[in-house]
Nucleic acid binder design. Structure first.
Lengths: 201, 201
DNA sequence: GATGGTCCCTGACAAATGTCATGCCCGGGT
DNA sequence: ACCCGGGCATGACATTTGTCAGGGACCATC
């Protein structure tokens, strides 16, 4: 019997996945949580064999949660299940110690197999995404550039960003300009879109 | 036996929902599709009692699909199931003839009940969302403003937008300015964020 | 302890964006 | 027939944004 932990902020999806996996005779869902913060406690309490974590969650995101789990319980396998096949997510997930990475586009029938593979100690990675990840490469943005782009995500003006990060306006503009150049964008909005799409933010 | 059609672009979620609903003795999933374009054909072929449609889908979106279904088969009930509780989505869904509107945050246990209610001819609407919808009101944007904002979503420059819509740059700037004013934003990026968040785009 | 590299910071300049006053067209009301 | 309001279009003007050249701090390498 493989014991599973499910973490996804959308209760409906979480419950549905539980129902799907419960159909398999060798799988058992022992815990369900709706935020990244609850993951570690749930692992401590229920000791699952495999943890299925969504990336997009309130509180701690799935990747950080994966790192926390692996740190304290190295023999708990982590399978990341996410909506967005951002190349950067895959890289960061693997670095965080995840054993598998599945996007929500994959057929439902394959999920149980992915769980079994991960439990058996194998890696499970969407092949198409893996190549994307190689193409996209690591984030070319420096720490400051990333920070400034994040602050620009909601459409803040340079003055606002400068105030929030305690920088001069010229500096903020310069970091933005650099990020625009590195992403191949034409302005900050596009740069945000590209960087976000690659999982760099 | 209530016959169901499931439409969601994420195969994993679709399959999981099917598994969840199949647990109910009085429900039967007779068709599953992964895009809005396939919905109408599937309804013609399988004649479900209730169609569960996601809003975010490639091709025809769930709301347009709902309208198409209701037009040809007025006795097929439509239940919209969506990730984002955008106020505008609810309004448009109801105008399109949907009988229910459920966000994916709701507990899995309630979905089957929602289906039964809808099948019985009742309306099912998330109460919190309904109030939001009243507060947000209808879109204050004119047709052109909406069009220009949509074109600006990906970070295109004024020149690009002007070229795409066959307008002068000044006109595009003017519509953007107007949209910025109506949304209470400080620049176009923020205006896009606000309008999109309200389901106005 | 020089050298070259990278990152961070900054101000000056050019280019894009946002605002405004103005005019045209259409449909509803007086 | 007349006026009025709303949506659309446009060019001139002020503001914001993006680019560039340059300087200082830190680190690895020679």
């Amino acid at each position: 019997m493989i014991r599973l932990l499910l973490a996804d902020d959308q209760a409906l999806v979480r419950g549905a996945l539980a129902a799907l996996l419960a159909l398999e005779p060798d799988l058992e869902v022992v815990a369900e949580v709706g935020s990244g913060d609850e993951v570690l406690d749930a692992v401590r309490e229920h000791r699952p064999d495999v943890a299925l974590l969504d990336v997009e969650m309130p509180g701690l995101d799935g990747i950080s949660a994966a790192a926390a789990v692996r740190q304290e319980f190295p023999d708990v396998r982590v399978l990341i299940v996410t909506t967005f096949g951002r190349p950067g997510f895959l890289r960061r997930a693997l670095q965080a110690g995840a054993s598998g990475f599945v996007v929500k586009d994959t057929p439902a029938a394959e999920l149980a197999d992915a769980v079994r593979r991960v439990h058996a100690g194998l890696r499970v990675v969407d092949p198409a995404l893996a190549t994307d990840s190689l193409v996209a490469g690591e984030s070319p943005l420096t720490a400051r550039e990333t920070e400034v782009l994040q602050a620009a995500r909601d459409g803040s003006s340079v003055a606002t960003i400068a105030g929030r990060l305690f920088l001069s306006e010229g500096t903020v503009r310069n970091h933005l300009s650099s990020a625009i150049g590195k992403t191949g964008a034409g302005n900050r909005a596009e740069a945000v879109r590209i960087a976000d799409g690659n999982g760099w933010l």
